[in-house]
């Protein structure tokens, strides 16, 4: 119940801050671009757009959210409130995943791509969004300004995005699937181009495991480095 209330409060906050409005504008922009792409390019561009923007939005926004709440003293109140750290973090992850999923579905639906596995798209969007939001909370530790946060995300982004080129295919490129972003992109591409059911299940279970591991680790970093600041 506490978690549900926290999620609702976060959603209200995000609406107030214009997250939903800005994603309506961004979705419109992508739809204009997508409508001019030939079908063969759309087949590649659409999953890449859904993966690189809506699914990763948590990483972009979470830095500012935590810094602002830290500045407002919300994190200090958290220590004495019944809301646990993991509930606070999970609430952020869920609420940002909702924006991700809605944007991903809107972009895909209005691009009129013929063969979409909607369930797989939903699962891959949620799992990818979770990973990047949790990563953002960890990066946030030790940051005092948004500029510091944005700069600190660059190496992590490179670390997560560059291996995705392995999907172009070269000897042993399959090994890169161990990197969560590559697994997530593979699952995302699978929701558009088709994927064997056992491969999809394995990728989804792997990403879920990574999410749970990251959540556990993030809670520790959040308590030690952000709330109590060691």
């Amino acid at each position: 119940m506490r978690l549900l209330h926290a999620v609702m409060a976060d959603i209200r906050f995000q609406i107030k801050q214009g997250f939903y409005l800005v994603y309506v504008i961004i979705t419109a922009m992508y739809l204009i671009i997508m409508s001019f792409l030939p079908d063969d390019i759309l087949a590649v561009a659409l999953p890449l757009v859904v993966f690189s923007d809506p699914s990763v939005l948590g990483l972009f926004f979470i830095g500012g959210i935590i810094l602002m709440e830290k500045g407002q003293g919300v994190l200090m109140v958290l220590v004495v409130s019944p809301l646990r750290s993991w509930e606070y973090i999970l609430s952020k992850v869920i609420s940002l995943a909702i924006v991700s999923v809605l944007a991903a579905i809107a972009i895909t639906y209005f691009s009129y791509y013929p063969t979409v596995n909607w369930w797989l798209l939903l699962v891959s969007s949620i799992l990818t969004s979770g990973i990047f939001t949790l990563l953002g909370i960890m990066i946030n530790a030790g940051c005092n300004t948004v500029n510091q946060y944005m700069l600190k995300t660059i190496p992590y982004m490179l670390l997560f995005i560059l291996p995705c080129f392995a999907l172009l295919g070269f000897p042993y490129s399959e090994l890169f699937t161990i990197i969560p972003s590559v697994a997530a992109l593979k699952l995302m591409l699978g929701s558009f181009h088709g994927i064997l059911w056992y491969e999809a299940t394995a990728l989804a279970v792997y990403l879920l495991g990574i999410n749970l591991l990251l959540l556990k680790f993030t809670v520790r970093v959040f308590e030690n480095k952000i709330v109590y600041q060691d």
Partner: peptide, 27 residues
């Protein structure tokens, strides 16, 4: 008014770049 709104603005302002490609779309 705050950092989060700043991030929302930054995200939205990126869409302005679309106008640089406007004549490609022939709309």
């Amino acid at each position: 008014e705050d950092k989060v709104k700043g991030l929302t603005f930054a995200k939205g302002l990126n869409t302005l770049v679309l106008f640089a490609f406007a004549d490609l779309f022939a709309l």
